[in-house]
Amino acid sequence: MIHHSIRFTVKPGTTPEQLETALESLRNQGRVIPSVESFIVGRDFGGEYEWGATFLINDIDGFWDYLIHPAHLHTDRIGLPLVDKFASFDITDDTDPDIGTKIADLHRRRFNEIPDVAGLVSDLPEYLGSAAPGPRGA
């Protein structure tokens, strides 16, 4: 099982309507992406982030399907422009000693194959995560 989690804070000036549209898009990912077993989207307490989401995915093949699904890409395209600080991390109970490398490779592959999303991530003021592309111009 892979638990893919994100934590984020929105930019000042983001309207409640923009935020709700992005949060609803995250919820929609959980509902429509077949490889998502369960999910949660909500407030993030106990840290420096305001919001978060976690998606449970059975295996590495399902994780790739999740990463490139149109519902996920839609969320990236409407949500990332609103984000100030973002962290992405993956937790797994998979015993494959190479699973961490495989997960990071999928993130890199996604950024390589979907350059507009890589650009949105690179434009974030702060991004931490698996295979995060660096800021533009770096």
Rank of each mutant, 00 (worst) to 15 (best):
H3Q: 13
H3W: 11
I6W: 04
R7A: 14
F8M: 11
P12K: 12
P12R: 11
G13E: 00
G13P: 00
G13A: 09
T14G: 08
T14E: 00
T14L: 03
T14N: 00
T15M: 09
T15I: 02
P16C: 06
P16E: 10
E17S: 08
Q18N: 09
L19A: 00
T21C: 01
T21N: 12
T21R: 15
A22V: 12
L23C: 05
S25Q: 03
R27V: 05
Q29E: 13
Q29W: 00
Q29D: 09
Q29C: 15
G30V: 03
G30Y: 01
R31D: 08
R31N: 11
V32T: 14
V32R: 05
I33T: 01
I33Y: 00
P34D: 11
S35N: 08
V36L: 04
V36S: 01
E37W: 02
S38G: 12
S38R: 15
F39T: 03
I40G: 08
R43G: 07
D44H: 12
G47D: 15
Y49I: 02
E50Q: 15
W51V: 01
W51L: 06
G52R: 04
A53W: 07
A53Y: 10
T54R: 05
F55Q: 04
F55A: 04
N58T: 12
N58E: 14
N58C: 07
D59S: 07
I60D: 00
D61F: 08
G62W: 04
F63P: 01
W64P: 05
W64S: 03
W64L: 13
L67M: 12
L67E: 07
L67G: 04
P70C: 05
H72V: 04
L73D: 10
L73I: 13
L73E: 13
H74T: 14
H74N: 15
D76I: 08
R77G: 01
I78H: 01
I78L: 15
I78M: 13
G79C: 05
L80F: 15
L80Y: 13
L80H: 12
L80I: 12
P81N: 12
V83N: 00
K85R: 14
K85V: 01
F86W: 14
A87W: 10
S88L: 10
T92L: 10
T92G: 04
T92A: 08
D93A: 12
D93E: 12
P97C: 03
D98S: 10
G100T: 12
G100Y: 07
G100N: 14
T101E: 12
K102T: 02
I103R: 05
A104Q: 06
L106R: 14
L106Y: 09
R108K: 13
R108F: 05
R110Y: 01
N112R: 07
E113V: 01
P115F: 04
D116Q: 09
D116G: 03
D116W: 06
V117F: 04
V117R: 10
A118M: 07
G119D: 15
V121A: 02
S122T: 10
D123N: 14
D123W: 03
L124A: 06
P125M: 06
P125N: 12
P125E: 07
P125R: 06
Y127E: 06
G129C: 06
A132Y: 00
A132C: 08
P133V: 14
P135N: 10
P135F: 06
P135S: 06
R136P: 04
